[in-house]
């Protein structure tokens, strides 16, 4: 099989939400000695980008995006360990987290997917994440981006607490902080000292390209 054929198969499998095909395709790529980074970018990421564009255009909806994300991760799980560390030195690092007190993580997971598809090394800190974990991860992993979300009003202040924690640690100037979630707004982002707030994951990734 040619590279082009395999990459197209991977891309189409991501678009179609077929995790078995992406897993098998990724294994085949490695067995054929294809470059893992190229396979990710030309196959999996290309497919996820198509899905992201279709989602933004309201041509597909969350169930399809989630199925595609599952397919992408199924391939990534095979390909990422095969990338030599020397090729990952320039990779931007991002942490995504639902802040302390909240467990609604579907938005965070969409952001994680789009960030991963854009080439970031994403640290998924999960939900109900203590401030200290966000701050400590930023420092220990030399993060470029911290992305926080919450669905609920009472937990919005945890975003400010996390930013204050980054300031106290001296790391704030080294990291871009972006927030999201229905109760947040650009004015709230400004109020708490975040750099950005976005309506959707795809737009946020686009904004980050300019910010970093």
């Amino acid at each position: 099989m040619s590279k082009e054929e395999l990459y197209n198969r991977l891309s189409e499998a991501v678009v179609g939400g077929k995790p078995d095909i992406t897993k098998n395709g990724a294994e085949e790529a490695l067995s054929l000695k294809f470059n893992a980074v190229e396979t990710i970018n030309e196959g999996l990421v290309k497919g996820m980008s198509i899905v992201g564009e279709r989602y933004a255009a309201h041509e597909v909806y969350l169930p399809q995006v989630l199925m595609s994300a599952q397919a992408m991760y199924s391939g990534l799980n095979i390909l990422l360990p095969a990338i030599p560390k020397s090729e990952m030195l320039d990779q931007k690092k991002c942490a995504v987290a639902v802040v302390e007190g909240d467990v609604h993580d579907i938005g965070k997971n969409i952001v994680k997917t789009m960030m991963t598809a854009s080439g970031y090394h994403v640290f998924d800190l999960g939900k109900d994440v203590p401030i200290t974990v966000i701050v400590d991860t930023a420092e220990s992993e030399n993060l470029d981006v911290v992305a926080m979300s919450t669905l609920m009003t009472p937990t919005m202040d945890a975003m400010k607490d996390a930013i204050d924690g980054l300031i106290e640690s001296g790391y704030r100037s080294k990291v871009v902080v972006t927030i999201g979630g229905p109760p947040t707004s650009p004015s709230f982002a400004e109020e708490i000292g975040a750099d950005h707030r976005d309506e959707n994951a795809q737009n946020c990734v686009t904004w980050l390209k300019g910010a970093l």
Partner: peptide, 11 residues
């Protein structure tokens, strides 16, 4: 969980 439910709608 919304994520599980949305995927199960398909599968």
């Amino acid at each position: 969980g919304a994520e599980r439910l949305f995927m199960d709608m398909y599968t």
